[in-house]
Each structure stands twice: as C-alpha cells, then as structure tokens.
C-alpha cells in the first residue's frame, strides 16, 4: 500500500489545486441565501464576451486569465447593490485583479484574507473569485448590506486563496496582504504599478508580485521559461555572470537574486 502513497498524495493535491470545484461553478446567490433581498435577472459572461459588459476594460481581466462573470443588481432594505463575481483561472489571477483594483481601503473585513471596503465598494478576493459589491450612496447601511451580500457569496466558496507570501521568501511585511500587487502583463503594470512600465517594457511570460517596503520596491518575478528570463535580462543589459552566481548588484543599482531557474527577486532602492 505504501508504494501507492506518492501517487495518492499527487492525486490529492491535484484535486485541491485543479478540481476542488466543478469547472464553471459560481458562488452566485439568490433569495434562498438572502431571504430579505430581491434579485434582478443576472447577466453572465464567459471568456471574451466580457467585452459585452466592460468593453476595453475586459482586456485587463483577459490578461490575468478570466473564466466567467456573474453580474446582478441586488436590492436590500430598499437600496441597490451592483454585485459582480468574476471567476478567474486561479487564486493568483483573482488576487491579481483584486490587487490592482483596491485603493485606500477604509477597512478590511475578515471575510477572506483579501478584502477592501470603501464607502462605495466592498471588494473580496476568495479562492479563484474576485467579488465587487458597489453601492451608490456610500452610507453605513450600505456598508452593512454589502457585508451581508459578501458574506453570503464567500460562504459558498470552498477553495484556497492565493498565498502571496510564497512569492516573497524571506521577505516579511505585515502589510503584504494589504499592499502587494500581482501582475501578469502590461495592463496589470499600467494599472497597478505604472512607474514600472518601462522596467518591464514588452516583457511577457511572467507573474510578478510587487511590494513597496520602505524606500525599496521588491519584485518577485516568476517567468514561464528560461527564454523569458533571458529576454528580461537582455532588456536590462544584465551581466549573465551575476545571474549565474545567484545574487548581485546590477549596473542600474537594483539587487537581483536568482531564487530558482525561473524566479528572480529584485530589490530597487529609490
């Protein structure tokens, strides 16, 4: 039996990462979840049909890896809430879209590791889902109602959320969950870290977590292939010798550490 443990373990983890929920599953809610609420007919979008909802704004979601969206207007205690649930291709992708969309959070309600509440919006990243609940008047009742809606949705999600600390081994920041952003391409950079647009240039095939840490900007960049990492090195005219030694200070002043074949940790000081 013991000889099958590795296979069983592999299948177990595979099931957690890839098949923990039925493909196409949506934690959509209705009157059975919120009996006091009234629901309009939901609109759904999959893949590129998201253009039909947010036109050019869809490109950002598609860049991260978008699977489907459920949009509804929910009426609660006489007020209306535009509720959007985006299913991304995975937890990191969901965190990515969340991370470049949040801004000046007034609070971070404990519905999931990643939440952001402002007067007019509650944003949640849970599992592979990015959830946005928007109100139009911005008062306390709206905040409470938004939390009720958010809670009902999150209650139906049963999968792991992104672990951002895994991107930044050895880097501790108590604000990591609140401040880190995750990008996978040019649009993510433009939305989340526009000052780094030139630094990434036309680079493709990467997933980067960016964290401001005092005077330094820390970038954890995972590349899809050696070719991608080499192109990035060429863009910055890095000495390949330094990269092969594991760590070094580059001509432009940044410190680059090669964590693995495809993974760089870059620290840029102001």
């Amino acid at each position: 039996m013991t000889k099958y443990y590795p296979i069983l373990c592999f299948l177990y983890f595979l099931s957690i990462d890839c098949f923990s929920q039925v493909p196409g599953y949506f934690p959509s809610i209705d009157e059975s979840d919120l009996p006091d609420a009234r629901f309009e007919t939901p609109k759904t979008y999959t893949g590129s049909s998201l253009f039909g909802y947010i036109n050019g704004g869809a490109e950002l979601y598609l860049e991260y890896g978008f699977s489907g969206a459920w949009i509804n207007e929910i009426h609660l205690t006489g007020r209306s809430y535009i509720t959007e649930i985006y299913r991304m291709n995975g937890p990191e992708e969901a965190f990515g879209i969340f991370s470049v969309s949040r801004y000046q959070c007034k609070s971070t309600p404990p519905l999931s590791p990643y939440t952001c509440q402002t007067k007019y919006q509650l944003q949640i990243c849970s599992g592979a889902f990015y959830i946005s609940i928007i109100n139009s008047t911005g008062n306390k009742t709206d905040s409470v109602n938004s939390l009720k809606i958010g809670e009902a949705i999150v209650h139906k999600i049963n999968e792991r959320s992104a672990d951002i600390s895994g991107f930044l081994p050895g880097v501790y920041s108590e604000n990591m969950n609140r401040e880190a952003i995750l990008v996978k391409g040019k649009l993510g950079i433009m939305n989340g870290a526009p000052d780094l647009s030139d630094y990434f240039g036309e680079t493709t095939g990467y997933c980067a977590v960016i964290l401001q840490r005092g005077e330094a900007t820390v970038l954890s960049v995972r590349f899809s292939s050696l070719e991608d990492i080499n192109e990035f090195a060429a863009l910055h005219d890095w000495d390949p010798g330094i990269l092969s030694t594991g760590s070094g200070k580059m001509r432009a002043g940044e410190t680059v550490t090669r964590i693995s074949d495809h993974h760089l940790l870059i620290e840029i000081r102001k």
């Binding site: 050019g56 704004g57 969309s101 801004y103 946005s132």
Partner: peptide, 12 residues
C-alpha cells in the same frame, strides 16, 4: 483617475 475605463467607485 484609475481603474478606467471601467467604473471602480474608489477611483471616481
């Protein structure tokens, strides 16, 4: 000023 062209209330 951010999040456009979509409408994110915190950026309006």
């Amino acid at each position: 000023f951010n999040g456009g062209p979509g409408a994110n209330p915190q950026f309006i």
